[in-house]
Structure formats: structure tokens, C-alpha cells
Design a protein around this nucleic acid. Structure first.
Lengths: 145, 145
DNA sequence: GTGGTGTTCATGCAAATGCATCGACATCGG
DNA sequence: CCGATGTCGATGCATTTGCATGAACACCAC
């Protein structure tokens, strides 16, 4: 069998995965997403935090758990819905810049408010635990970059 | 804006989600899954931890992040590959019991070993942090049941 | 028992996703 | 300047997924 270090690491990963899956299930079941999907909201939210509400497709793809072709088509659908615009990158003629439109920002904020209320309703950890969990997850993620 | 409690909860959820996404990306990129997919491994692994390596389809579905019809078809494919068997539940004629075959268990162990090594290679937290992260994630998940 | 309601799983079908690949451009070395 | 190599994004195509629904059974009240 593996050594204890491997086991501790595996157990931490499994706990993280199961917690994320269970919580995501609950959040998805809460009816706050109505006009779009959770994954589409993730794109709008990520864009809303970017400077000038814009990002290269390739940059977006590092945050979103989709393959590059899938994200490309999702952005195409969001553009068709008027929630984002696609512009050529003046600095790199290969690139596409995705920009959150005003309608897209409004959509993100609308869903975001309901989503945040939903999270608060569902999660029941103490403030200390919330802060510790956030700190550990941030540390884990940054250690991977 | 929301109150600070809502913000703390949202930030913890976001940190958890991003950490999980980043880590899952790394794990998926590591070439250890060869004959099956990560989701299929998740099903085999979940079954391997069940008593007698068997579980009702409905029970499996609570652990796996798939809709019921999607899991039903995935199990169908796994059965076709000889990794699981499907049996009627003697106690509930509606139910289907999914059983990990010997070949399925062998597959789970083979992938599992490489997967565990992969996790250990990628994650670089201290033992204390790993234990604390596991504890918090477990507490979060159980608080949701 | 019987009717009504809830649960479990499967299937038709449309939509989303992933893989392989391609074209266009960037970057680097000579 | 030029060729080789790498990167970015889009598209064809097969597979997977989700939604809506249906069929079979369990469970409960009466």
C-alpha cells in the first residue's frame, strides 16, 4: 500500500471533492439560475471580476472547467444571447477578447444576489471555520500555480 | 451589498470551487486514466467502498455528480465493458443493484494507484494543512446532510 | 383490498461536451 | 528576411449529458 503521506493527501482530495460535489448539488437544486445555467453563470462571474470586464478566451479557459472547444461554443451562445461581445485582440491577431455587456453584467448581478443568498442559507459553518476553509483552499490553489 | 456573513460564506465557497477546479484540471492532465474516464473511475471507486462492492443505482447517484438518466447510461456502458454487473434488487422490484466485477475492481485498483501517486506529486501542503483541510471539508459536507 | 401518491429506473430526443484537426498568427533562430 | 516551431481559436463529428416523460413498483390512508 502507499505510504501515509500519500494517504493523507488522497484523503484530503477526496474530502474536498465530496464537499464540493454535495454543495454544488444543493446549490444547483436551489432555483436561482433561471434563464442561464450554472456553468454559464460561472463565465459571466469570471468576466465581471476582470479589468474592464474583458478577458482573452484563453485566459477564461484557465478558470472554467471546460475544454477549449466547449468554452468557445459556450461563449458563442452567450454572445448570441447578448450577454457578451467578442472582439478581435488588437495586440494579437490570433486572439479573441470576450467582453461582458451591460445586459450580461446585469444578469450576473441578478443571479449573483440570489446565488449568494442561497449559499448563506445552505452553509452552516462558524465564521472561524469559513475563514480557515477559505485560507486553506487559497493556499492549495496558489501552491499549484 | 450583502452582509459580512454572506460575504464570508460566498468567499469560502468560491475558494473551495476554484481549488477543486484547478486541482481537478491538473489531475485530469496527468495521464493515469487511460482506458476509462475520470467520471467512470469515480463510479468504480465509489462502488469499491460499498459493502460487498454493490450499491443501488439511486444510492450511487447521491455520490456522483450526474443526473439520474446520465448515471443510468454510464452504468450501462460500464456493464457492457464488463466492469460492473446489474442485478435486480430482491427487496424492491423497482430497484437495480450495481455490482463491481472482479475486472472492475482490478481496474479501480490499477487506476487508483496511479491516481494516488499523481495527487501526491501535485499537492504540496504540509501534513497539518492536509489534515485541517480534510477536517473542514468533512464538517462542511456532513453539515449539509 | 383499493385508489392515490411518491419513488425508482429507463428511454426518446435535443443540446452540450470532448477529441482530433485545421488555419491563422506569433515567436524565435539563423 | 525566412523557415521552423509553438500558440490561439474555430469546426467536423462522435459521444455524453440533461430534460421530459413513461412504466413498474412501493407505500399509505381509508
Amino acid at each position: 500500500m502507499g505510504d501515509s503521506r500519500t494517504q493523507r493527501t488522497s484523503e484530503a482530495w477526496e474530502a474536498l471533492l465530496r464537499a464540493q460535489v454535495t454543495l454544488q448539488r444543493r446549490l444547483a437544486a436551489d432555483d436561482v439560475w433561471d434563464p442561464i445555467s450554472m456553468r454559464e453563470y460561472d463565465v459571466l462571474y469570471t468576466l465581471s471580476k476582470c479589468p474592464s470586464r474583458r478577458a482573452r478566451l484563453h485566459e477564461l479557459n484557465r478558470e472554467i472547467l471546460l475544454t477549449q472547444p466547449s468554452l468557445s461554443r459556450m461563449v458563442e451562445r452567450l454572445a448570441q444571447a447578448g450577454l457578451v461581445d467578442r472582439e478581435p485582440d488588437p495586440h494579437d491577431k490570433r486572439g479573441t477578447v470576450v467582453v461582458l455587456t451591460d445586459a450580461g453584467l446585469e444578469m450576473q448581478r441578478h443571479i449573483g444576489r440570489r446565488h449568494a443568498a442561497s449559499i448563506r442559507r445552505i452553509v452552516a459553518l462558524s465564521d472561524d471555520d469559513l475563514l480557515a476553509l477559505r485560507s486553506l483552499c487559497d493556499k492549495l490553489r496558489t501552491s499549484l500555480d
